[in-house]
Design a protein around this nucleic acid. Structure first.
Length: 443
RNA sequence: GGCUGAGUGGCAGAGUGGUUAUGCAGCGGACUGCAACUCCGUUAACAUCGGUUCGAUUCCGUUCUCAGCCUCCA
C-alpha cells in the first residue's frame, strides 16, 4: 500500500485509487519557451518517480502531463529569437524531450498540447459564463473568484488577508483584484483564435482544467506539480473545474494533491527570473544522466535540495560504487518489488533517501533478496537513455593498452606501466587491479 | 502582514522517548610494485530556552534563523 502526503489535507494518507484498474494522474508540464533548468528537471523527476511507483504496483496507470505552447512568455521569446511561435515551442519541446530522457524520465501516457484544445477551452468558458462564475470585461473573460466559496482551499489562503496587488498593478476592469483571466484579447501580431469575445488566447490556468477533464475525466486520483504552482495555479484550476461541475469540493476534481519542493542554489530558489540557473547541458559534460538523477532524488521530494557541485560528486561516487556491485548480477528485466526494502521505503511517501541508504547497506550484506532490491532500485533510479555502451574500437584499444601495461608490470618495468596508466587516465579510463586481473571503466 | 515548510556531525541525509542510521569526505590499518578497488577500524551531530518524563535529538510550548508562496514560476 502506497502512502502519500496529500497537500490538500496536509496529511500523509494511504493511497486508495478511485478505479483500481486505472489509476489516473495529472501533472503540470513545462511551458516550452526556454531550455529547462535543473530545478525544473527536479519537478519532472519527482512526477516520474510517482508515476514509476504507481506503475510498479498497479496494473494500469494513465499519467498525463501537458505542454503549454501558448503563453505570453512564448510570445516574448519568439519576438526575441525572431522565429515563429510554432517553431519556438517545437524547438524547446524537443529539447525538453531530450533532457527528460537523459534524466531517465519516462514519457507520460498522454502529453496534450494546449493549442490543440482551444475549442474545448472556449466551450468550457461558455459554461462558466452561463453559471455566473465568469464575466466579460474589456474584451477579457475573467473568473469571478467571489462566486466560488472555497477559493484558496489548497493553499489555505483567506483571500481578504492576502496582499493582493502589492507587487502588481490590478487591472481596473476587474470586479475583484483576485479575479483571473480565462481569455484575453490578442492584437493582430499576436497569436489568436476566433472566439465569441473576439480574437484572443486562453489564460494559463484554463488548459489544465480543460485537458484533465477531457483526457482523464474528473474526479481523477492525483494532481501534481511544483510547490509554487499551489497558488494561484492549482487553486485557480480547482475553482474552474469545481464551478464547471457546480461542486464545491476540491476532491470532486482530484483526490490527492502532490507537490514537490524546490531546488536551491546558494540557499535560494533556482529560477529563470532570478537568473541563477544551471541547465542540463551544462552538466552533461561531467556527469551521467543517472548520476544527476540520483542527485535529484537524494533529498526527499518535499524537501528543498541544496544543489552544489559537491552533491553531484557525492552522487557520482555513490552511483559508481553501487554499479560496481550491480555488475555482478545479471538482471533480465527491471521490476518494482513492493516487499523489498527499497520498495518499502518508496511506498512510504516516496522516501528516496531511505531507499538509497537501504541499497547501500544491502550491497555489502549478501542479503538473499539482494536481486529484488537491485531490480527495484535500478527501475526507479536508473532510466537514463544515455548510451553507456562502449564503442568496440575504443574498447579494443583500451584492452590492448592494459595488456601492454600488464606485460610491463610482469617485467618489473613500472615506469612504463605507470605511463600507460596515465595515458588511460587521460582517456577517462579508470583501472583497478583486482586479484591479478585488471578491471576498467570509463568515467 | 497572511499562509506553508524547514533547522541533525565538514557535506548530504533518514530515523528514534532510553542502545546515538547510512553514504561522501577525514583519520588509522590490511591488501597493492605504486595507485585504484575492496575490506576492517575510527573521529564527529541532533538551532534556542522552558515544560512533560525516571529519561528527550525524538512529545508540547517559547525564541531565533532560513526558505517558498501571496506577480510569471517546477
Amino acid at each position: 500500500m502506497l502512502k502519500i502526503y496529500n497537500t490538500l489535507t496536509k496529511k500523509k494518507e494511504s493511497f486508495v485509487p478511485i478505479d483500481e484498474n486505472n489509476v489516473r494522474y495529472y501533472s503540470c508540464g513545462p511551458t516550452v519557451y526556454n531550455n529547462i533548468h535543473i530545478g525544473n528537471a527536479r519537478a519532472f523527476v519527482c512526477a516520474d518517480l510517482l508515476a514509476k511507483v504507481l506503475r510498479g504496483i498497479y496494473k494500469k496507470v494513465t499519467f498525463v502531463s501537458n505542454i503549454t505552447d501558448i503563453d505570453d512568455k512564448i510570445i516574448e521569446a519568439s519576438a526575441e529569437e525572431k522565429i515563429s511561435i510554432k517553431e519556438l515551442s517545437k524547438r524547446y519541446f524537443e529539447q525538453y524531450k531530450r533532457d527528460t530522457k537523459f534524466l531517465g524520465i519516462d514519457d507520460p501516457d498522454n502529453q496534450p498540447f494546449a493549442t490543440d484544445f482551444i475549442k474545448e477551452m472556449i466551450d468550457f468558458i461558455n459554461v462558466l459564463i452561463d453559471k455566473d462564475a465568469a464575466y466579460v470585461a474589456n474584451g477579457n473573460v475573467l473568473f469571478r473568484v467571489k462566486s466560488f466559496k472555497n477559493y484558496g482551499v489548497l493553499s489555505d489562503r483567506i483571500i481578504q488577508e492576502q496582499d493582493s496587488g502589492s507587487r502588481v498593478d490590478v487591472e481596473t476592469y476587474k470586479e475583484d483584484p483576485n479575479d483571473f483571466t480565462l481569455w484575453k484579447p490578442s492584437t493582430n501580431d499576436e497569436p489568436g483564435w476566433d472566439s465569441p469575445w473576439g480574437l484572443g488566447r486562453p489564460g494559463w490556468h484554463l488548459e489544465c482544467s480543460v485537458m484533465s477533464e477531457i483526457v482523464l475525466g474528473v474526479p481523477f486520483d492525483i494532481h501534481g506539480g511544483g510547490n509554487d504552482l499551489k497558488f494561484p495555479h492549482h487553486d485557480n484550476e480547482i475553482a474552474q473545474t469545481c464551478a464547471y461541475h457546480s461542486n464545491e469540493s476540491a476532491e470532486s476534481f482530484a483526490k490527492y494533491w502532490f507537490h514537490n519542493g524546490f531546488l536551491n542554489l546558494d540557499n535560494e530558489k533556482m529560477s529563470k527570473s532570478l537568473g541563477n540557473v544551471v541547465y542540463i547541458d551544462d552538466l552533461k559534460k561531467n556527469f551521467k544522466g543517472n548520476e544527476i538523477r540520483l542527485a535529484l532524488l537524494s533529498s526527499h521530494y518535499r524537501q528543498p535540495i541544496p544543489w552544489s557541485l559537491e552533491l553531484l560528486e557525492q552522487s557520482k561516487n555513490i552511483y559508481q560504487k553501487l554499479n560496481r556491485e550491480f555488475k555482478k548480477y545479471n538482471l533480465k528485466e527491471l521490476k518494482f518489488y513492493k516487499d523489498s526494502k527499497v520498495g518499502k521505503a518508496l511506498l512510504d511517501d516516496l522516501n528516496t533517501p531511505l531507499a538509497i541508504r537501504e541499497m547501500q547497506r544491502l550491497v555489502s550484506s549478501n542479503d538473499s533478496y539482494l536481486e529484488e532490491n537491485i531490480s527495484t532500485f535500478k527501475y526507479i533510479f536508473e532510466g537514463s537513455d544515455q548510451d553507456l555502451s562502449i564503442d568496440k574500437k575504443l574498447s579494443n584499444e583500451i584492452e590492448k593498452l592494459i595488456e601492454e601495461r600488464n606485460n610491463a608490470r610482469n617485467n618489473n618495468d613500472y615506469e612504463k606501466a605507470d605511463k600507460i596508466r596515465d595515458k588511460l587516465s587521460k582517456m577517462n579510463v579508470k583501472i583497478n587491479d583486482v586479484n591479478g586481473k585488471t578491471e576498467w571503466e570509463i568515467l
